[in-house]
Structure formats: C-alpha cells, structure tokens
C-alpha cells in the first residue's frame, strides 16, 4: 500500500493512500465525532458530524468520505468546525424527544455524548416535530422513530450485511423515516430479527425489549462469552446485573465483526426459563423425586459398577454433548474410558 503524508491538527502523519481522513485520524488516536460511519458499511456521509477543515477547501468536507491526499492539511476542532457540529446537534435536538431521564439509551447515546462534548444546552430552533407512533409490535425491540436521527446505519446493515433488506428510507426531506416496505409492521416484513440494527443505532430509536429498565450501561457487568447455538462461534458480551442477564453487546472487535443472528442476539432468555432443573431427581415408581447430590451420584456410581461387573465395561455407553465445553467433553470421555469402554459418542452426526 502506497503511503501519503498528511497533517492532522499539526501532527505529521504517514498513512495508507486509500484511507479517508476519518480513518487516518482514528489511526492517530484523534477522535472525530460521527453518527453514520461504520467501518464495514458503505460510506454515507449523511450525518455530517465529522466535518473538518481542510486547507484549500471551500466547504467543510466530511472526514468519513474524504480521501487523504499527499500534503493535505486537516484541522478537526477549529471554531468553524465546532460551530457546524453544534448547529447539527442543535438541529437534531429541535426534533428529538427530551426524555433522556428515562430513555433506555442514556449512558450509551451518541447524541448525549456529543451534545455534552460540544456544549449544547438546548436548541434555538422551535418548530414542527415528528409524531410517529411508537412501535412495539415485534417481540424483540422497540422502534421509536421520533428519536431516529436518520444516520441510516440500520438500513445499510440490513442491506449490506444481513441481506434481508427489510427496512429503507421512506418519504423525503423532513418527512423521511426508516421503515419497512409500505410501512408494514416489521414482523410482517422480510426482517429476520438479527438485531444488528439495534446494536448500531447511535440513539434510542431502536432499543431491545429484553432488559428494559433493568440497568444503566454503567451499572452492568459485561462478560465476554461465546454463543451457545450454532458452530459459527460468534462472541458477545453478556450484560449482567443482580445475577440476571439484562442484555448483550456484540463483540465488534472479534473475528465475527459483531455480526449476530436472532438466536444469538435475542435467544438467551431460556437461561431463566421457570422450568430449569434445579435439583437432582431420582425416578421412584415411575415418578421423579427430588434427591440430594450425594444420593443421586451414589446411585449412579453403584449402578455403573454393577453393570460393569455383571456385563463388562462395554455394557456402559455415554453420549457426550456438542453443547457443553471442551473441558466437559474431555472429562466425559475420560470417565467412560476410565470405566474401560470406548462407547462414547455425541451428536456430531445429527
């Protein structure tokens, strides 16, 4: 990759020639605010938060779509730039519900973060506001399009990554909204509920139903783990509060780039299904009776020893599990083999 020399905020940098100004800045640890940029999606240049001053340019170009060029001189936080960003934030504020106190997104909302950063105290613009009905018809997430800032990441994620293409822009200008074809309920659209739109929404327009009102971002522990469903091996962070899972964040930095499907994203609530087995059970006269661990394990050990003694070790067989961990599979086959049999298999064939 050929390199070019550029200067950002007085810092001389040598960067890949195919980078954008935003990427170059990020590579140097310079944070340029953006709502609509996502590294794996088509560059939209829609929100205009990332405008910067480039020497010689008439306007303020968007850093996310402007390629670097040899000798380019960029300033990312001049007064003119900050003024433009503040104006953009104020414009968004003018048509954004101000229910931050109870908004589920509080604490992880980019609109909040940037409004704080650019000292937005309110909006000087009063006028028409959108009044789109709140949508809670699908089981997985809420759609509050009045909070939507039309960055379009959800649309691009849906088309470019998932391929479902369930949502797109409807109407134009001030009347623009992101919705399904013919504005049908989302569960009647081609949506497959991967939730990737929810996870990249920078504001509170798309929020998961799971974990509602159960914890602010700063109150939850985030535990990195691996999905229990198919073999793709997606990883994500479980949000835990008070010994309950209250949400998840994809592992955007991981090998699966934070992509998920409906099962991994929303299908973890079986964990606290009320019919979880909680005690050992021994069948007596055709009925299961609660037992202590000691009773149950003693019984098993006795039976296995009896069968082994009477019919030989190969009269014992075990099915291990593709759902359990490596460590557990290892111990399972170790146990069976220690008993003297290789009768161990699992459902790889199914």
């Amino acid at each position: 990759m050929s390199k070019v020399n550029i200067t950002i905020n007085g810092l001389a940098l040598q960067v890949d020639a195919n980078m954008t100004v935003l990427e170059a800045a990020q590579s140097a640890g310079i944070d340029i605010p953006t709502f609509c940029h996502d590294p794996e999606l088509t560059k939209a240049g829609a929100c205009r938060m990332c405008v910067v001053e480039v020497a010689g340019a008439r306007n303020l170009p968007a850093a996310c779509t402007t390629p670097v060029a040899e000798g380019m001189v960029v300033e990312t936080e001049t007064e003119r730039v900050q003024k433009a960003r503040k104006t953009i934030l104020e414009l968004i504020w003018a048509d954004h519900p101000h229910d931050c106190l109870t908004c589920e997104k509080t604490g992880s909302c980019k609109l909040q973060d940037y409004s704080y950063r650019y000292d937005v105290k309110g909006s000087p613009y009063q006028g028409e506001v959108r009044e789109i009905p709140f949508d809670d018809t699908n089981p997985f997430f809420f759609r509050d399009l009045n909070k939507c800032i039309l960055c379009g990441k959800c649309v691009r994620k849906c088309h470019e990554i998932n391929g479902a293409g369930a949502i797109d822009f409807m109407n134009r200008g001030f009347g623009t909204k992101v919705t399904t074809a013919f504005d049908d309920p989302i569960e009647e659209s081609s949506c497959v509920f991967c939730g990737m739109c929810v996870d990249i929404c920078p504001v509170g327009a798309l929020t998961p139903k799971q974990g509602l009102n159960q914890g602010r971002p700063w109150e939850v522990d985030k535990v990195l783990t691996t999905c229990p469903y198919c073999g793709s091996g997606c990883t994500f962070y479980l949000h835990v509060r008070n010994d309950k899972i209250v949400g998840i964040t994809p592992n955007f930095a991981g090998p699966m780039k934070g992509h998920l499907c409906v099962k991994g994203r929303f299908g973890w609530d079986f964990v606290d299904s009320p019919d979880r087995l909680q005690t050992p059970l021994i069948k007596k006269d055709g009925e299961f009776v609660e037992a202590t661990w000691d009773e149950a394990l003693e019984l098993i050990a006795t039976k296995f020893k009896e069968v082994g003694a009477q019919y030989g070790a190969d009269a014992i067989a075990g099915l291990s599990s593709a759902r359990t961990t490596n460590e557990e599979n290892y111990l399972f086959q170790k146990l069976l083999r220690s008993l003297g049999t290789n009768n161990v298999d699992h459902c790889a064939r199914l």
Binding site: A44, G45, A46, C47, R48, M49, A84, T87, I88, L91, I92, A94, D95, Y125, G127, E128, I149, L150, G152, F169, N171, R172, G173, F174, G175, T176
Partner: peptide, 21 residues
Amino acid sequence: TQSESCGKCTPCREGTKRMLE
C-alpha cells in the same frame, strides 16, 4: 428547496426546515 430536500444529510433536512420556519 425544503420540500425537495432528499432528507439524507442532517443540515439540509433539518436546517432548511428551520430556516423556512
């Protein structure tokens, strides 16, 4: 221009609306 704004970028979509108001 406000009624012909495509709605893609924030300044034009929101800004022309407020200027008009």
